[in-house]
Simulated scan of single mutants.
Amino acid sequence: MSPKLQGIVPALWLLGVLSPLWCPPVLCDCKFPPTIAHGHHRDVTRSIFSTKEYAYECDEGYTLVGESRISCSSSVWSALAPECKAVCPKPEIENGKPSVDKDQYAESENVTVECNSGYDVVGSQSITCSEDRTWYPEVPKCEWVFPEGCEQVLAGRKLMQCLPNPEDVKMALEVYKLSLEIERLEKSET
């Protein structure tokens, strides 16, 4: 505010021309509300005599970080404008999961991938939600680790110790049964 106006304003207050509830835009205006990337604002001021207030919303695929509403008082905004950050979907990890289990994650959010027992991470264990709404580096895989001595399970021996769950044991027995059948057919052809 200019020095001349600073001298006039107190006099206007005393004369009752200016009320403490209302400050004219010429003296107390924040101009325009701050704009934000990937979002917009709308005027939610209740009346011409109340403080200017704006509500912020993000475009689809983005989440609001910061105050959703800001107001102007004495030429100063009540808070910094919020940001709209990209949203990444929950990473799908077969035989594993993210360290923090949510439906979606905000841009720059870091997640550690944890594999189920008997499985190891193949790729980067730490991934970050990118601005383009993808994970960087790419989501790793959880691959089954063969316990030592289980590289080949012969004739069903060590089957229970080497396979992580009953479904895998059943599948291994079916494959073994099929391999015996193939072996028998090959011998009968010769």
Rank of each mutant, 00 (worst) to 15 (best):
M1W: 14
L5D: 15
L5K: 09
I8T: 15
I8A: 13
V9P: 13
P10C: 11
P10V: 14
L14P: 10
L14Y: 14
L14C: 14
L15S: 13
L15C: 14
G16Y: 11
V17L: 12
S19E: 12
S19I: 09
P20V: 12
L21G: 14
C23H: 06
P25S: 15
V26N: 10
L27Q: 07
C28F: 03
D29W: 07
D29G: 11
K31Y: 09
P33G: 04
T35N: 04
I36L: 11
I36C: 05
A37D: 04
A37I: 02
A37S: 00
A37Q: 03
H38P: 02
H40V: 10
H40C: 07
H40Y: 08
H41N: 10
R42Y: 09
V44A: 04
S47K: 09
S47F: 07
S47M: 11
S50W: 03
T51C: 00
K52D: 03
Y56H: 06
Y56S: 05
D59N: 06
D59G: 05
T63I: 06
T63L: 05
L64T: 02
V65I: 05
V65Q: 03
E67I: 02
S68D: 14
R69Y: 11
I70K: 01
S71N: 08
S71T: 06
S73C: 06
S74K: 09
S75T: 08
V76F: 07
W77S: 12
W77F: 15
S78F: 09
S78P: 10
S78A: 10
A79D: 15
A79Q: 08
A79H: 12
A81K: 09
E83F: 13
K85A: 08
K85F: 13
C88K: 11
C88S: 11
P89G: 12
P89Y: 10
K90S: 15
P91F: 12
P91K: 13
N95S: 14
N95M: 14
N95C: 12
S99T: 15
S99F: 12
Y105L: 10
E109V: 12
E109A: 06
E109D: 09
N110L: 14
V111M: 13
T112G: 12
V113I: 15
G118V: 11
G118N: 05
Y119V: 03
Y119I: 06
D120M: 08
D120C: 04
D120F: 06
V121N: 07
S130Q: 11
E131N: 00
D132C: 01
T134N: 01
Y136E: 06
Y136I: 00
Y136H: 02
P137C: 02
V139G: 00
P140W: 00
K141F: 03
C142T: 13
E143F: 07
E143C: 06
W144A: 04
V145L: 05
G149M: 05
C150L: 10
E151W: 05
V153W: 01
V153I: 15
A155T: 02
G156E: 04
R157H: 05
R157W: 04
K158Q: 08
L159S: 08
L159E: 06
M160G: 08
Q161F: 00
L163S: 00
L163D: 01
P164W: 09
P164C: 02
P166E: 15
P166A: 08
E167N: 08
K170A: 09
A172Q: 04
L173Y: 04
L173G: 03
E174V: 05
E174L: 01
V175F: 03
Y176D: 01
Y176W: 02
L178I: 03
S179Y: 03
E181N: 01
E181W: 01
I182S: 02
E183H: 01
